[in-house]
Amino acid sequence: MGKLSGLRHLFMTLFLHNFASFMVIPAITDVTMAALCPGRDECSLAIYISGFQQAIIGLGSFVMMPLVGNLSDKYGRKALLTVPITLTIFPLAILAYSRTRSFFYAYYILKILTAMFCEGSVHCLSLAYVADNIPEGRRASAFGILSGIGSCAFVCGTLSTRFLSTASTFQVSTAMAMLSAVYMRVFLPDSIINDNLSTPIISEGKSDGVANQNEEPDKKMQVFKTMPSMEDMLALLKSSLTFSQAAIVSFFSNLADVGLHASLLYYLKARFHFNKDQFADLMVITGVAGTISQA
């Protein structure tokens, strides 16, 4: 338990960050409908732009995640965790200030740009942080605790939304996101940076090309040259049949989950006139079930 207790600051950081992210989910449907189709419970435009947003974020994340992982190997998990946790604050702050149409579009654009870097990176970097600090034989338990904390934050975040107004929801979410960033910078120790670490998705030729240069290149240029390209990522997928199969399963699983979530809330609002309170009730039920299943 000594090793796991050493991760308590990471667990608290993730709880605060996920709490801030999850508590706005029940409210964002009402905000979107009010901004794009005020006074209506049906709005095809809201569904279209939500789907477009998810598609762009997914493609951007596919490109950015290997870059984030590569940079975290060089500069440390804490340094790279700081970026997505901090960027998460800005879209929330826009809707905390105002939820009119112009502010919603500002949120929409900024959310796409930031989520391409933030979506999934906090979770992936957290897993890498755990792997850095926990022996291999105990990592499964630590990963399970990490997942349980995410489920707990989901329940607490959506439950709190049930008792807050829409404006207060985004204000509290912004405050919690800021608190998570401050807490992480103050209390979370960094993993040891290994300068000799090389990532497997870097092609051998590219690594050799950087290593065999006669002159010491500029640091920024060296980092740029060691960034994984699309060719490197495809080579990684082809390098292991098990990894490729896991990636395919993950792709279709997330495709179904995101597609269902993107349309279900709008369907419930159009068909049964749900608002954020009813959305929060449903999410609390599913969150509690998920938390119990991971206990």
Rank of each mutant, 00 (worst) to 15 (best):
11 F>Y: 14
14 L>P: 00
19 F>I: 06
27 A>Q: 06
31 V>I: 15
32 T>I: 01
34 A>M: 03
37 C>H: 08
39 G>V: 06
40 R>F: 02
40 R>Y: 06
42 E>L: 02
43 C>P: 08
46 A>P: 05
47 I>A: 15
50 S>Q: 07
51 G>T: 08
60 G>V: 01
69 G>S: 08
74 K>C: 03
76 G>F: 03
80 L>R: 14
81 L>H: 09
82 T>I: 01
92 L>N: 09
93 A>G: 04
98 S>Q: 12
100 T>G: 13
105 Y>Q: 07
108 Y>E: 07
110 L>G: 01
110 L>M: 05
115 A>W: 03
117 F>T: 12
123 H>A: 09
126 S>P: 01
127 L>R: 10
136 E>M: 03
137 G>V: 02
139 R>L: 00
141 S>N: 10
141 S>R: 14
149 I>R: 11
150 G>S: 13
158 T>K: 08
159 L>V: 08
159 L>H: 11
169 T>Q: 09
173 S>E: 14
179 L>N: 10
180 S>M: 13
182 V>A: 13
185 R>D: 07
186 V>W: 07
190 D>V: 07
195 D>M: 09
199 T>S: 12
199 T>L: 05
199 T>N: 14
200 P>G: 11
201 I>N: 11
203 S>N: 15
203 S>T: 11
205 G>M: 09
211 A>Q: 10
214 N>E: 11
225 K>A: 10
225 K>H: 14
227 M>N: 01
233 M>Y: 05
234 L>P: 00
237 L>A: 13
237 L>S: 13
263 S>V: 12
271 R>W: 01
272 F>S: 03
275 N>A: 04
277 D>I: 01
280 A>Y: 02
283 M>Y: 06
283 M>N: 08
293 S>Q: 09
